[in-house]
Computed example of a mutant assay.
Amino acid sequence: MYTPPAFREDDPVLLRQIMREARLATLVTATSEGLIATPLPLFLDESEGEHGVLYGHLARANPQWKTPPTGEALVLFSGADAYITPSWYAAKAEHGKVVPTWNYEAVHAYGAVEFFDDPARLRAAVTRLTALYEQPRAEPWAVDDAPEAFVAAQLRGIVGVRLPIARIEGKRKLSQNRSEADRQGVAAGLAQSTRPSDQRVAAMIPTRRE
């Protein structure tokens, strides 16, 4: 990922937060037949390894798990993002030398991917992933709520994904390269938007240089 120094993010706490909040990731593998990508929810087990381990599952019919990767796999996580109009820049009134851009957060995680179909491991991964997203609900659904035979049949239709993160790249492009006046204009403009994602990015803009 191209990451100018101003936008580089190395804080592991922030990187893990972006990964958790992204909810849906994209698993990319390079193979002798070309690139293969699958959008899928993943959870991060921070107790394993230096950077943690990602877990999820694919449909058994998905050819990605059957096609050997030629190197590391890549998982893409997209965080908050927003279009930035040059009309918000103070510099527009000063000299007009401004152009549109996009602010965003992104994390790229790399590692050797493992696919598995052991029923016990699959059930454990599915149970943890389900609990992660059901927990906030008033009446959370659990895997054990479904009939055992039905669950067993569903598990036969998927393949587990395990990716120990070997290296990780983070980028937070939040107008850090603009003047304080321009950044204040961007924050104010985004805050007035009716789009929740714009308002979220507005709160992230650093309005004073550190």
Rank of each mutant, 00 (worst) to 15 (best):
G157D: 05
Q176C: 08
I168W: 05
E180P: 14
P140M: 12
F150A: 14
A187W: 06
G157Y: 01
N177A: 04
Q176I: 06
K171A: 09
E169P: 05
S197F: 10
R195V: 11
E180K: 08
L155G: 00
A153S: 14
E148A: 15
V186N: 12
V143H: 09
I165A: 04
G160Q: 01
K173D: 13
G157R: 14
G170E: 09
E148F: 06
I165G: 00
A153L: 10
K171W: 02
A146H: 15
A181D: 10
A188V: 11
V143M: 02
V161A: 05
T194E: 14
L174Y: 02
A149G: 15
R167P: 09
A188L: 06
A149F: 08
E148D: 14
V151P: 06
L163H: 02
A138F: 02
R178T: 02
D198C: 07
G160M: 01
G160C: 07
L155H: 00
F150S: 14
L155I: 14
I165R: 01
E148Y: 10
V159D: 09
V143Y: 03
A191V: 14
P164E: 10
P164S: 08
D144R: 07
A191E: 00
L163Y: 00
I165N: 07
P140Q: 12
L174K: 05
I168L: 15
Q192K: 15
D145R: 11
E148C: 12
G160W: 00
A181R: 06
R195M: 06
T194C: 11
R172T: 03
L163P: 04
D182M: 05
Q176T: 02
V161H: 05
T194K: 12
G189F: 11
W141D: 08
P164Q: 04
A152G: 02
A142V: 06
R178F: 14
G189M: 11
P164W: 02
R178L: 13
V143R: 02
G189L: 00
A138L: 03
A188Q: 14
A166W: 00
R172G: 03
S193W: 06
R183C: 04
Q184N: 13
R156Y: 00
R195A: 14
Q176E: 03
L174D: 13
S193L: 08
L190E: 05
E169H: 15
D144K: 10
K171M: 15
R167S: 06
V161K: 09
A191D: 01
L174I: 01
E169Y: 10
D145T: 09
I158W: 12
R162F: 08
P164A: 13
A149T: 15
D144A: 14
D145K: 11
